[in-house]
Design a protein around this nucleic acid. Structure first.
Lengths: 209, 209
DNA sequence: CAGATATCTTTACGGCGCATAGATTGAGAC
DNA sequence: GTCTCAATCTATGCGCCGTAAAGATATCTG
């Protein structure tokens, strides 16, 4: 009983309304999409009054930030798994890209919330650059392992940024119907993603191709 | 006097309320950002009653689509100019990318509306693939001019898509504060963009590097 | 001029984010 | 164990939103 998360400020009446609200939000997001995610609807879903969330979140944006935070953690996990499965650093780079896009495609509403909240603050979440096993650092480290010069930090950062931008752009585009015929021509979504990534010079140029 | 646009269904009382509403929307968008773009605010800005817009647009989404449409036309123009200025096809590819991102950075709210409405319909605007001098076709044609094999249509389409995704991803990322230090290190925003594009293999591989 | 029709206004409904004030309930002090 | 207090939740209300419906008004057609 005493083994609750120990992280939250502490719940009183409800048990853990903060947790319940985030879960309710994610449930709604999955079921109805981002446009249906009103604070009132979340409260309704969680079974509390419309004003109750304000005791746990300053405003709607803060709830969305909490949801987005969990999204980034999920993404970290997905990328970690992809990296672990890759047989070589070169494969890992491609695998990370594919895993990134697949995450975005499988959680479109969550992905949108993640970037919408970041854009509102003009700032990606701190965890992205600071946490040691953040998604960003995972990509950067993998680029180094794949042969990028670890001395040239500017080049490494540029390469990591380029990879991230490419994956993000592809993640957003892959949802459009316009590309269905391309996916078919490539033999499915993942082969399509691989083909696109092949056109993006993400792997550092080495002698062998 | 009779030289009005001849395109619209025809205005009555107001002169051209449809036009005025779109202009008002773009003015608001520029001044207050996308979140302030309510149908009522647009009507207010145009000096009509809150319900007036419904005689010209089915709903709010249709007004946004009209705004987005003008955005795509502006983007087409910006890319055309960039292409005309480029001394070589290779330069043109880079120039198109930079022009694309600059357009997005100079019109952030408009750019967001363009992709938000597209995403809601899961469909990029028809003009993108059909119009002969659409942005998409301009990129594709430039890739061919730069040396891509015009016979391999699948490869061309993949390369164009890759270029588009890269530019879109970079356009969205470039707004985050995280990258300020990278921009500074590169000596400004445009050099930063060029450096990133250099890491994305957009120009078809030819013998000479 | 007369009717039809397109345009615009008025009014109204429900939902939203959020502020405020009051009720309830659990936790620590004694 | 009781008291006190602060944390939590509810009730109510404000102004905004999108949009539907009905009435007023101006323009087009004949």
């Amino acid at each position: 009983m005493r083994e609750s998360q120990v992280i939250e400020p502490r719940p009183y009446h409800h048990g853990d309304l903060r947790r319940a609200l985030i879960d309710a939000a994610r449930r709604l997001l999955e079921a109805e999409g981002p446009s249906a995610l009103s604070l009132r609807a979340v409260a309704r879903e969680a079974g509390v009054s419309p004003a109750a969330p304000y005791h746990h979140f300053k405003d709607k944006g803060e709830l969305l930030e909490a949801v987005a935070h969990e999204g980034w953690e999920l993404l970290d996990g997905a990328l970690a798994k992809a990296k672990a499965l890759a047989p070589s650093p070169q494969d890992a780079i491609n695998g990370l890209g594919v895993a990134y896009v697949c995450f975005a495609r499988e959680n479109p509403a969550l992905y949108r919330v993640m970037y919408d909240t970041a854009r509102d603050r003009e700032d990606l979440p701190d965890q992205m650059q600071d946490d040691k096993d953040s998604a960003y650092c995972k990509v950067r480290d993998t680029l180094v392992e794949a042969g990028a010069d670890p001395e040239d930090t500017l080049d490494i950062e540029l390469a990591t940024t380029a990879a991230w931008c490419s994956a993000h752009g592809l993640a957003e585009m892959a949802g459009f119907k316009q590309f269905e015929h391309l996916k078919d021509a490539c033999g499915g979504e993942v082969p399509f993603l691989r083909a696109i990534f092949q056109h993006m010079g993400l792997v550092p140029r080495r002698s062998a191709d």
